[in-house]
Simulated scan of single mutants.
Amino acid sequence: MKTSFGDWLRGAHAGHRLRRIIPRRVGQLGAWLVLAVALSACTAARLAYNQAPTITYWWLDAYVDLDNVQSTQARDALNQFFQWHRQNELPIYAGRLREWQALAPEDLTPAQACAQFEDVRERIERAADQTVEPFSRLALQLTPAQLEHLQRHQARSNEEFEKDFLRGNPEQRLKKRLDRATSRSEMLYGTLSREQRALLRELIQSSPFDAERTQEERLRRQADLLQTLKDAQATPARASQLVREHYARVKRSPAPGYDAYQRELVRQGCAQFARLHNSTTPQQRANAVRVLKGYEDDFRVLSAQR
C-alpha cells in the first residue's frame, strides 16, 4: 500500500504492531520509524531492530535500484537515522508502552484511545522530519531509469491493494478485513470469543472505510511523488522544501473532502477500538498487559545499546 514519498520511506506499514494496538488511519506520514517499530515488535525483536538499517536498505534498493554511490550514501543515512531513533525515540516509546499497561486493565473511552493515537502520530511526524534531508539528496540523484523502476513498483502495489480491498463481492471483502482485524486483535488479547468476533464484524461493517476512495488518494499521492522528484531535480536548491511540501500534502490531502474522510476514519476507529477493548475479559486484558510489557522491555534494552 505504498503510495507516496512518505510510503516509499517507511516500508513495513502492514507489519506495524503499534497500529494493531492503537487504531490508526493516519494516511501516509512516512518515516523509517515505522519500519523500526515494526521490526522491534516482531518475535526476535532485538535482533531484528539491530538489523533494521540493513533490512531497510534492501527494501529501498528494491524500489529504486540504487547505484554504488547511492548505496553508500543510503547506508550512511540509515545508520545515522537509526542511531538517532535508538537514542531519542525508543525511550519515549518504552514510556508510552508503560502507560498503556496501566490503561489496559480498565475500560477505555474513545477519547482516551484517540489521545494515544495522536501521541503516536506525533512521534511518527517527528521521525519523518529526520528523513527530509537525506531523501532530498537522494531525489537529486535518481535517474530516469530509476524513476521508471519506482513507477513499476507503484503499479505492483496498486495491484496488491486491489487484490486485498477491491476484488470479490462485498461478503468476500468483509471476510478479508475481518480476518486481518481478528489476527491483529488476538496478538494483543489472545483468542477472541465468538461474541467478540461478531462484534468485530459489526464494527467493520459500520466503518466508513471506502476502498475506492482510498485507492484514488493513493494514485494522487503516487503522481505527486513522481512530480516532486522531477521538480526537485529541476530546481535543486528547493529540493528540501519540495519534499517537505510533499509530506504536507500527504498529511493533509488537497483532494476535496479527503481530510474530513480521514478524520472520520480516525474518530470511528477510536470508538471501535474502545468498544472491542471494553468487551474483553480480565484474562484478555492481563494478556494485553503482558504483551505491552514485552514490547516495553525490548525498547528499553534496545535504547541502552550503542
Rank of each mutant, 00 (worst) to 15 (best):
F82M: 08
A111N: 03
R152E: 12
E148S: 11
N88Q: 15
E186Q: 15
W84S: 07
H153P: 00
V132M: 05
L147N: 05
Q141R: 14
G190F: 13
A77R: 04
F81P: 11
D67L: 05
L178N: 10
D129E: 15
V69D: 11
L188G: 07
V64K: 05
E99D: 15
R180I: 04
Q196T: 08
D129S: 13
S183L: 10
F117I: 01
K163I: 00
N88E: 13
F117K: 11
M187Q: 15
A145K: 12
A77D: 14
Q130I: 05
R173C: 01
S183D: 10
R86Y: 07
R126P: 00
D67R: 11
E125K: 14
H149Y: 11
L166D: 01
E125C: 07
F81M: 08
Q141P: 04
A155H: 12
Y63G: 04
E89G: 09
Q116P: 01
R180Y: 05
A102W: 01
A77C: 02
R167K: 07
P91K: 08
A145C: 02
D107L: 03
E118P: 00
R152P: 01
L166C: 04
H85P: 00
P134D: 10
P144L: 09
W59K: 04
N88T: 14
Y57N: 01
L147D: 03
R137V: 03
K176V: 09
N169I: 02
Q70A: 12
E159L: 05
R177N: 06
R197A: 00
F165N: 07
E118D: 14
V69K: 03
H149M: 11
T182I: 13
G95M: 05
R167N: 02
D65N: 12
R177F: 01
D119T: 14
L192D: 09
T143S: 15
A145H: 09
Q83S: 13
R194T: 13
R180N: 03
L108Q: 11
E171M: 08
Q146S: 08
L97N: 09
P144A: 08
I124H: 08
Y57G: 02
A145R: 13
R152L: 10
L192N: 11
H149Q: 15
Q73E: 12
A77E: 10
D65F: 01
D179Q: 10
L140F: 06
A115D: 14
Q146K: 05
R123S: 11
R167S: 06
A94T: 03
P105L: 06
L147C: 09
A155C: 01
A115L: 12
Q141D: 14
F165G: 00
W100L: 15
E99Y: 10
S157N: 12
F82G: 06
R167T: 05
N88V: 12
Q83D: 13
E159W: 00
T56M: 08
R173P: 00
W59I: 03
R156N: 06
L138P: 04
A145Q: 14
T143G: 02
Q141W: 06
V132P: 06
L97F: 15
S193I: 03
V64A: 13
E125R: 15
A111F: 01
N68T: 14
A104R: 02
A102D: 12
P110T: 06
L174P: 05
E89A: 15
L166T: 02
S193Q: 06
D129F: 02
S183E: 11
A74L: 12
Q101E: 13
T72N: 08
E99K: 13
Y63F: 09
L188A: 09
T182K: 12
E159F: 00
E162Y: 01
L60R: 03
I124K: 04
W100D: 01
